[in-house]
Design a protein around this nucleic acid. Structure first.
Lengths: 196, 196
DNA sequence: TATTTGTTTAACATGCTTGTTAATCACGCG
DNA sequence: CGCGTGATTAACAAGCATGTTAAACAAATA
């Protein structure tokens, strides 16, 4: 199962071979079919689990009871850290979804409720902040999308970004931390904007 | 060749079948091998072309001689429009690169020079603006990354985003236009920020 | 007309991948 | 002890994808 996760995440559904998964797990490939019947079956379980993980990552954006701006900052930071620890997750999910629209069902079932809940909570926070006199121009959805966009894309494009900026492998973490600060600044810039 | 582009873009290298490509092109699969020798060979040509396309998309961010803020706005808009017209391009490139690090070479060769040039020009624009008294807090690289992040991720996640926001297929363009405005606002918010 | 060169085709070879199967094994229980 | 259930194995079946090949073909050239 863990072997399957690794293999599928690394190569995707089509390129992953059941024999390799079995070998990595230390069992014969007949055994693997004995337990999971088909590759599709095994994949579904992995995919479900990974979607769940991705959904949970949204929740990390909302953090404990701390002042508003700090909360956003912490949320962005935690989210990026999560992605940095699971760098293949977003690409894997995106790829498998566009490659096989059937999987959107799983996606809808798991992602939709979490997404709605997080947006709702975030909206409440924004509303509360607005009532306290702050000028918060964005809708929760918009804010959420902005944060997720920059965080996820940072991870997605990390190999290319490191190529283009000629960053060495050992400076990866440093690169990410710097980028994190930039994202926080960009997000906060709109939230702290003085409105006419 | 065009058939190959479509097939590879839709399914990726592994899932694309040379027989399907041949069938779509209206030739026998033996013919296809006669001209291109191997699948890998054919793919390389397609990949090169697509990377080139992606590189060119960066250039659209810089537009004609118009005022600074408007230029940024136009650039973001043009870039997103380009991506909307080539929605599978970013995911395809990202997937094939992480799936086969050898391809990073092609990526470096084509992307790097364009990237450097664009960043350079953008930096000049920012510097000029700064000299004119504006407070432009970002480096060109940072600005670029922010824009590209939000634009690309918007396209990457469009299927999921439409699922989560319960947007219907026929409202796709409207959804994108609204998102475009949000992105422009987010980008400009930092550029027009009043600095202490 | 005969020859050469490059194109096209059908048929084949090979290897790999998923999935099955029948025989064997291990072990708890009547 | 013997029996039965589930686990395990090796061997196999079928299908499919890539790539080759040898023969037929077409067209230009000598």
């Amino acid at each position: 199962m863990l072997a399957a996760e690794v293999e599928f995440m690394e190569k995707g559904f089509v390129a992953a071979k059941t024999t390799d998964i079995a070998r990595r797990a230390g069992v014969t490939h007949a055994m693997l079919h004995y337990y999971y019947r088909t590759k599709e079956n095994l994949f579904k379980q992995v995919f479900q689990k990974k979607i769940q993980l991705l959904a949970d990552s949204f929740v990390t954006i909302l953090s404990q009871e701390i002042p508003f701006l700090e909360k956003i900052q912490q949320g962005v930071s935690a989210h990026l850290d999560f992605l940095a620890a699971n760098p293949r997750l977003p690409l894997f999910v995106l790829w498998e979804i566009v490659g096989n629209p059937d999987r959107q069902e799983t996606c809808r079932e798991v992602l939709l409720p979490v997404f709605k809940k997080v947006i709702e909570e975030l909206q409440e926070i924004l509303d509360a902040e607005r009532r306290r006199g702050a000028s918060v121009p964005e809708s929760a959805q918009e804010l959420m999308l902005n944060i997720v966009s920059m965080n996820v894309f940072t991870i997605l494009s990390l190999p290319i970004a490191m190529l283009l900026t000629e960053t060495r492998e050992e400076d990866r973490d440093q690169f990410l931390q710097r980028r994190k600060q930039q994202i926080v600044r960009q997000v906060l810039s709109q939230l702290t904007e003085n409105h006419k």
